[in-house]
Structure formats: C-alpha cells, structure tokens
Amino acid sequence: MTSNTLATPVARPRRATIAIAVAIAGIGYLAAWVIGLSVWPTNPAVTATGPEVLAGLAGHTGAAITQYVATQGIAGLALAVVVAGRLRRPARLTGYAAVAVSLVQCALGVQLAAYLAPAHQVAAAHSAFALLNRLDGVKMLLLAATALLASAPAVRSRSANWIDWTGLALAAAITASGIGYLLLSTALAPAAYVSGVLLLLWVTATAVTSRRM
C-alpha cells in the first residue's frame, strides 16, 4: 500500500515530462522539414545524371548540407523520440528502422554536398545521389508500414479518430512515392508532395496527443 501510494505522485510528473518532450520533438520534426525545404527548395530530379547532379548542387553547398542535416539528421532524431513515446510494437520497430535509414541519408547527403560535388567526382556523386533517392524509397515504405501498424488497430476497433484516418491516408500515399523513389521513377516520385504533407501532419499530431498508438 505504501509503495503504491508513493509511486503514483512520482509517476505522474515523469509521464508529463515525457509527454512534453515528445510534443517538442514532434514540433521540432515539423520545423526541421520546413527549414530544410526552405533553404534549398529545388533538388535535381531522381533520374538526374552525374553532370546534372553537379550542376544542381553548384553554388548550393551550404544550403544542401543544411537541408540534409535538418530533414534527415535532426528530423530523424526527432522522429525517434516520437516513435519511442507514442507508438507500440510493431509500429515502433518499423519507425526505428525508418530513423536509422534517415540518419544514413544524412551522412551520405553531407558527403555528397560537402565533398563529392565540390571535387567534381561525377560518377561518385551520381552514385551517391541515386543511393540517397533509393534510401528515401526504403524509408518511405518503412514509414508507410509504421503509419499502417499504428492506425489500423483503432480503425478495426471502430475507435479511430482523424489522426488514425490520416495515418491510413499517409500509408497509401507514401507507399506510392516510396516505390517511385526506390525505382527512380519520375511517374510515381511526385506523389511525395502529397505524402510529405500527410507525414508532417501525422507525426506532429501523433506527438502532441496523449494516446499511444
């Protein structure tokens, strides 16, 4: 009786602290993407050749590095906090896998923008850029699985709210864009414009809610 009585007041502030940290991470995820896309709003097409990749990065080294660090590095770490604080297994597992891919993309993107492109290593830059896009496809498919696994149980139990339905819409849209990036297809890759908005909305909303998914 005594231990339970003492544990409750301690547990509540801890849960509140975790909830605040997760909410901040969700807002940070959104901010990182907004900043990253603002500093360098245009990127070479997924089918860009080596010379086109170098031309696209020419004069944008700092902006490209900032974008990769913000959208893949900082956003990846923020997503890890949201996944840890809001998702249950197995959605947590696929979420962590997406975070790992994102951090690899950050390192590879910085190498491309800071070293390969300025050194005019055409073949290496092309290979790195293609790998970045394919990894983006893998990450998108992992995020699709994460959103589906997190949202589907509530839909099946008829307790879904708008966040769950957004998660299902995200799973469908980001699967299409993920396949496009994985195959370097200009036909499907533009679906990222829709899935990107849904992803930012879903992650941020999931972070600020108190419900585990």
Score class of each variant (00 low, 15 high):
residue 93 L to A: 14
residue 173 A to L: 13
residue 199 L to N: 03
residue 70 A to W: 01
residue 35 I to N: 12
residue 114 A to N: 02
residue 74 I to H: 08
residue 143 L to I: 10
residue 84 A to S: 10
residue 17 T to L: 15
residue 167 G to C: 06
residue 32 A to E: 05
residue 170 L to N: 04
residue 146 T to V: 10
residue 194 V to L: 12
residue 59 G to I: 13
residue 197 V to W: 08
residue 118 P to M: 06
residue 164 D to K: 01
residue 89 R to V: 11
residue 91 A to E: 11
residue 63 A to S: 14
residue 20 I to D: 13
residue 94 T to H: 06
residue 120 H to M: 02
residue 114 A to P: 02
residue 196 G to S: 05
residue 63 A to D: 15
residue 155 V to C: 08
residue 15 R to G: 13
residue 131 L to M: 07
residue 128 A to C: 09
residue 59 G to M: 14
residue 71 T to D: 00
residue 46 V to G: 02
residue 137 G to H: 01
residue 197 V to N: 12
residue 30 L to G: 05
residue 138 V to Q: 07
residue 78 A to R: 02
residue 198 L to E: 15
residue 139 K to C: 10
residue 19 A to G: 13
residue 68 Y to F: 10
residue 201 L to P: 00
residue 91 A to W: 04
residue 25 A to L: 11
residue 39 V to M: 10
residue 113 A to S: 10
residue 152 A to Y: 11
residue 130 A to G: 07
residue 56 G to C: 04
residue 146 T to K: 00
residue 182 L to G: 05
residue 180 G to P: 09
residue 42 T to A: 15
residue 120 H to G: 02
residue 45 A to Q: 07
residue 8 T to C: 10
residue 46 V to N: 00
residue 208 V to I: 06
residue 126 H to K: 13
residue 147 A to I: 05
residue 84 A to E: 08
residue 170 L to D: 02
residue 32 A to Q: 01
residue 107 A to S: 05
residue 94 T to Q: 06
residue 136 D to A: 15
residue 79 L to Y: 02
residue 81 V to D: 08
residue 127 S to G: 12
residue 167 G to A: 09
residue 82 V to L: 05
residue 179 I to V: 15
residue 131 L to N: 04
residue 178 G to Q: 02
residue 25 A to V: 11
residue 5 T to Q: 14
residue 167 G to S: 08
residue 97 A to I: 09
residue 140 M to I: 08
residue 205 A to M: 00
residue 15 R to H: 13
residue 90 P to H: 12
residue 98 A to Y: 10
residue 175 T to D: 11
residue 80 A to R: 09
residue 169 A to T: 10
residue 135 L to Q: 12
residue 131 L to P: 01
residue 16 A to Q: 15
residue 64 A to S: 12
residue 46 V to R: 01
residue 149 L to K: 10
residue 177 S to E: 12
residue 41 P to Y: 01
residue 148 L to W: 12
residue 171 A to T: 05
residue 108 L to W: 11
residue 212 R to A: 14
residue 92 R to C: 06
residue 210 S to T: 14
residue 202 W to S: 00
residue 135 L to R: 11
residue 110 V to C: 09
residue 27 I to W: 03
residue 9 P to D: 03
residue 126 H to V: 12
residue 57 L to Q: 06
residue 87 L to V: 04
residue 41 P to H: 01
residue 203 V to L: 03
residue 34 V to K: 08
residue 110 V to H: 12
residue 71 T to N: 02
residue 33 W to K: 01
residue 143 L to T: 04
residue 48 A to F: 10
residue 57 L to S: 07
residue 212 R to Y: 06
residue 61 T to Q: 13
residue 32 A to F: 03
residue 88 R to M: 11
residue 98 A to E: 06
residue 84 A to T: 09
residue 153 P to M: 11
residue 113 A to N: 04
residue 211 R to G: 06
residue 16 A to E: 15
residue 184 L to N: 13
residue 23 A to K: 06
residue 65 I to S: 07
residue 100 A to W: 03
residue 141 L to V: 01
residue 78 A to T: 03
residue 16 A to K: 14
residue 64 A to I: 13
residue 126 H to P: 15
residue 174 I to M: 02
residue 144 A to Y: 00
residue 82 V to I: 04
residue 160 A to I: 06
residue 128 A to R: 03
residue 4 N to K: 13
residue 118 P to V: 02
residue 38 S to Q: 08
residue 107 A to N: 04
